[in-house]
Amino acid sequence: MLNFIGVGSTFNTRLGNNSAFIKKDSSLILIDCGGTVFHRLQELNLLQGIKNLYFIITHTHPDHIGSLGDTIFYSNYILKHKPIVYFPDKDFLGGILDGLGVEEKMYYINDSKKIIIDVREFGKVEIEFIKTTHSNKLPSFGFIMSINGETFYYSGDSNDIENKIIDKLKRGEIQKVYQDTSGLNYEGNGHLYINKLIEIIPKEFRNKVYCMHLDGHVSEEEIKNSGFNVVKIFKN
């Protein structure tokens, strides 16, 4: 369902900033927009012909919104379109964009925690934001999305998975989990250590978990040997 522009953490620049998208015809849903993302959008020609642009933002660290301003500018000046940004704290994100010189008239922020995107290309898309444990300095969210008969959970950056997400996975109410995964284990780590992921996901459900936001300290082989999947970078 999701295609990934990048799958790396902040310092794992080789894999690009973690960001995913869903595109159909002239509509594009973009999940996070870190510093490397606008460049990759241009390289992959993903913005050409876009008339409906939607951003889902999980939190405001630079590797998740570093080129959000550039992409909003491009949408206004080149695509002639005012994009919609979904983020549950309008004032927080709006203040950051204002500091970057991105005028409020260039975008619209929807700060509802439960959202429906209803456009012809995608049909009805339902999104529910869920607060995550990542940073005590800024609001951070994951979300559950239902689209085209499939429901998945996307963690954003988080060092845990809520029990209700795991319960939904076990009951088949969620078909996939896209999870921020780290090879580092230290106090205050805002990302989910691979061994903790192994502890909280039973073996029979690990094939439904897709590891992303890789920090370079955990290998693809280690992830797959533990029964999980690794997301792949989209190539046009």
Rank of each mutant, 00 (worst) to 15 (best):
S135E: 10
D111M: 01
E128F: 04
D98S: 02
K131N: 03
E126R: 01
E128L: 07
I117F: 03
E128P: 06
Y107S: 10
K113H: 11
I130G: 05
G101R: 13
V125Q: 05
D111E: 11
R120V: 03
G123V: 12
D98E: 08
K124Y: 09
K113T: 05
S135I: 05
D111F: 10
I115Q: 07
K105Y: 15
R120A: 09
V119A: 04
V125N: 08
E103R: 06
K131C: 06
E104D: 12
T132Y: 02
V125P: 00
I116W: 03
Y107Q: 11
L100R: 14
V119Q: 10
M106Y: 06
H134L: 08
E103F: 11
N110L: 06
E128D: 10
R120N: 07
K113P: 02
I109D: 13
K124V: 15
D111L: 09
M106F: 04
E121F: 03
G99E: 10
Y107H: 10
Y108E: 14
S112W: 04
G123K: 07
D118V: 00
I116L: 10
D111S: 15
G123P: 09
T133N: 14
I130R: 15
V102T: 06
D118A: 01
T133V: 11
V125K: 00
V102F: 03
S112K: 14
T133F: 13
N110A: 04
G99D: 10
E121Q: 03
V119L: 12
H134T: 07
G101D: 12
V119G: 01
I116H: 04
E126C: 01
S135T: 15
I117S: 05
E128Q: 12
E103D: 14
L100E: 15
V102W: 00
T133C: 07
G101V: 13
H134K: 12
F129E: 05
Y107G: 09
K105T: 11
V125M: 04
